[in-house]
Design a protein around this nucleic acid. Structure first.
Length: 251
DNA sequence: AACGACATCAACCGCCGTAGC
DNA sequence: TGCTACGGCGGTTGATGTCGT
């Protein structure tokens, strides 16, 4: 026998979350922390699937989330990382504190994609649209919606592939815009645009940066005393960070 | 003011890798 | 060793909001 089922489908509520459900989930998680998601709905008194609770917390309730549209700098980071990583939204989100993979994915599909197309850049390959020559050999890659380097692992990507995107050339355009990568092979590192040349990219891709993303809300000094974080402090932090008011939770 | 088209985004679905039994 | 649940991920959907006519 394996484990017990994740959640019995019967009696599990779906659809938009109510303020009361949010309150229950948030209070539970702030009090007990994240344990096994399967147990969360039961312990928190929710008729939801554990997966649903996890998603709600990560995408909406998590106190360290940023609100609002991505700014230009964040957008540029997304574009650059997408050029390297493809649709690995969670990896991209890990480089943007306070942003979720879902949020970035949505923003990509609704804003950035169109912006790139307007600029004449293929949002999938990040190459100029007019250079797109579809050969039979290239079809599978396009069909899989992956960039040329998608089969490389992250380490390879971070160490081997050319760095282009945020880096700008002398015209002020992003290097990826004018990338002469007509061949589908991983190009040699661009001497004019390397990771080392771009401190922002270098920092984002460094282990130090990623390790700093602890998301440990309880350690936020502004809203919790350093040695004794309380639920009240956490709630205060949350209320400051979210655009709905206290009255929504009837607190 | 009413309607349809389009845009946005929260949430669901299904798949995959990992780990427990 | 194989089965199964868990956690996580990316793709997709549908409800809602906004804009144009």
């Amino acid at each position: 026998m394996g484990r017990q089922p994740c959640c019995d489908k019967l009696g599990v509520k779906k659809g938009p979350w109510t303020a009361e459900e949010d309150k229950k989930l948030m209070t539970f998680l702030l009090t007990h922390g994240q344990c096994c998601w399967r147990a969360v709905p039961k312990l928190a008194g929710l008729r939801r699937c554990g997966k649903s609770c996890r998603l709600r917390w990560i995408n909406y309730l998590r106190p360290d989330l940023k609100r609002g549209l991505l700014n230009d700098a964040e957008e540029q980071i997304v574009i650059d990382l997408h050029a390297r990583l493809g649709n690995r939204w969670s990896k991209i989100a890990a480089s943007l504190p306070g942003r979720t993979d879902n949020e970035i994915k949505n923003h990509w599909n609704t804003h950035i994609k169109k912006k790139l197309v307007k600029m004449g850049i293929d949002p999938i390959t990040h190459e100029p649209l007019h250079k797109q020559v579809t050969t039979p050999q290239e079809m599978p890659r396009e069909a899989s919606n992956q960039p040329a380097n998608s089969d490389m692992n992250i380490q390879q990507i971070n160490t081997n592939i050319p760095e282009h995107g945020i880096c700008t050339n002398s015209d002020g355009n992003s290097a990826s815009e004018n990338s002469p990568s007509d061949d589908s092979e991983p190009a040699e590192p661009n001497p004019n645009c390397s990771e080392e040349d771009d401190p922002l990219v270098s920092f984002i891709l460094s282990d130090t940066f990623l390790e700093d993303l602890t998301w440990d809300f309880s350690t936020s000094s502004e809203y919790s005393s350093a040695d004794n974080p309380t639920e009240e402090n956490s709630l205060a932090w949350f209320m400051d960070c979210n655009d709905f008011g206290v009255e929504d939770f009837e607190l």
